[in-house]
């Protein structure tokens, strides 16, 4: 096999993106657990993971720079490099939004206004979308990517229904505005995370088929 070093670099790039993805999955999952259970200890542990995501993102960027500058990837390799660059940016945003979620438990005094049933459901779907989009990236599966992005509609529906519910609650009882606002931000973060998962799915479709499509 020729270009051994090059192929190793490509494999390293894919691995690094998957590592960042795995970390994003953990941060999203733990931040949701911490906010639902108002678990300050778990929230703090989650916040501590952010620098690790920065290091991985940096490593991916350097690998991509080296590949483009020194190896001039083409065809499927070029698509891997382009999609890895975009996917890593989306994953880093998912980490950032999840970190925002993990900051909420520290701001809520006493318990939640209401059981977070729909919000938890949003979190579960977002986690499922993230896991499947990463799997689609790993296996270059455009169908899985498209199916995964379709879940975004469910997240959007839940977002609007919780949003309306919270606005109505605030209108009735202005004393809850502070707590309710944190929950509004929480659902907004989840909705954005689902959008970033859709972006990952779009990159996977490009990676697998060279087609540029919009999925949300």
């Amino acid at each position: 096999m020729v270009r051994e070093t090059y192929l190793q670099q490509l494999a390293l790039l894919k691995e690094s993106v998957l590592s960042l993805g795995e970390l994003a999955e953990k941060i999203l999952h733990d931040s949701m657990e911490s906010v639902i259970n108002l678990d300050l200890e778990l929230a703090r542990e989650t916040l501590d993971l952010e620098p690790k995501a920065d290091r991985l993102e940096y490593k991916i960027e350097v690998t991509i720079n080296d590949l483009i500058a020194l190896q001039q990837p083409l065809a499927g390799d070029l698509r891997l490099v382009v999609s890895a660059l975009k996917i890593s940016a989306d994953l880093r945003r998912i980490v950032g939004l999840s970190i925002n979620i993990a900051k909420i438990p520290g701001k809520i005094e006493g318990g939640h206004l209401k059981p977070l049933v729909d919000t938890r459901r949003m979190g579960d779907i977002a986690e499922e979308m993230l896991a499947n989009s990463l799997k689609a990236f790993e296996t270059r599966d455009p169908d899985l990517a498209k199916g995964t992005a379709a879940l975004d509609d469910d997240v959007d529906k839940l977002f609007y229904s919780v949003w309306v519910e919270l606005i109505e609650m605030m209108a009735k009882d202005p004393s809850i505005v502070s707590k309710a606002t944190h929950l509004l931000f929480l659902i907004r973060y989840l909705e954005r995370i689902a959008d970033h998962c859709c972006n990952v799915c779009e990159s996977v479709v490009y990676l697998s088929t060279a087609e540029r499509i919009k999925l949300n």
Partner: peptide, 20 residues
């Protein structure tokens, strides 16, 4: 198309340096 998404595996293998 040839350099972004070639139709034949041997084309892709050649332009990406997997043989040649």
């Amino acid at each position: 198309q040839i350099f972004e998404n070639p139709g034949e595996k041997s084309t892709e293998d050649y332009i990406t340096g997997r043989f040649g």
